[in-house]
């Protein structure tokens, strides 16, 4: 465990909790893509099946349970508890266009052709693109609440920190996982445009709004 890995995990945790708190405090999930959140719940579910088969460390297990719990709680808030505030009309990205190709790719390109390994690969690939419905929704409405942009920044930062962690691990441990690295690069690249807007607008006290 190096400092980039740890701060990456914490950044991910901050993102997830921030979103949950925002929805809870405002009693509203307006501006949040339910489809992205369902996909993140699917990502955690398919990746953390090893909770039952493989014990790594208390830290590892506890974080997995927190991610899973928060992710399901978020989906519950969006589709059940605060359903009335869910902006379904603007959440129009077709999730099947991501899930089906990603599922096919996980079958074709994986480390090992076993159920758990294919599901793990699926989760890595799906995570890399799961934010697209959310970014699409912001493009469509042309704006995002500032707290939502903090969430997105922390979520994007997490994978960027993991990229540095992988470079570190390659040099100091000789460890590398090509599937995770390629997907992690794709995932980080998808946030680049958003990072630019976040730094130039939100950090200067302006609301994130796109030109019409």
């Amino acid at each position: 465990m190096n400092v980039f890995r740890l701060t990456g995990d914490l950044s991910h945790l901050v993102a997830i909790i921030l979103l949950l708190l925002k929805i809870w405090k405002t009693r509203s999930c307006a501006g949040i893509s339910g489809k992205s959140q369902v996909m993140f719940a699917l990502v955690f579910t398919t990746r953390y099946l090893d909770l039952f088969t493989n014990f790594i460390s208390p830290y590892n297990s506890v974080m997995k349970v927190i991610y899973l719990g928060c992710s399901y709680a978020t989906v519950y808030m969006i589709y059940m508890k605060f359903k009335a505030s869910y902006d379904g009309n603007h959440d129009t990205f077709r999730a099947e266009f991501l899930i089906i190709p990603v599922g096919g790719l996980a079958f074709l390109v994986n480390h090992e052709f076993t159920p758990l390994e294919i599901l793990w690969t699926f989760s890595i690939y799906l995570e890399s693109v799961a934010i697209l419905p959310q970014l699409f929704m912001i493009t469509k409405t042309g704006e995002a609440e500032t707290i939502t942009t903090h969430y997105l920044f922390a979520l994007g930062l997490y994978r960027a920190l993991y990229l540095i962690n992988w470079i570190w691990r390659y040099y100091f441990e000789g460890f590398f996982d090509l599937i995770a690295i390629v997907a992690g690069c794709v995932q980080t690249i998808l946030y680049c445009d958003f990072f630019y807007l976040y730094i130039t607008k939100v950090l200067h006290g302006k609301k994130l709004s796109l030109p019409a």
Partner: peptide, 10 residues
């Protein structure tokens, strides 16, 4: 190519 069966990352 490293296949990591023991996945310590989250």
């Amino acid at each position: 190519l490293c296949s990591s069966t023991e996945k310590d990352e989250l």
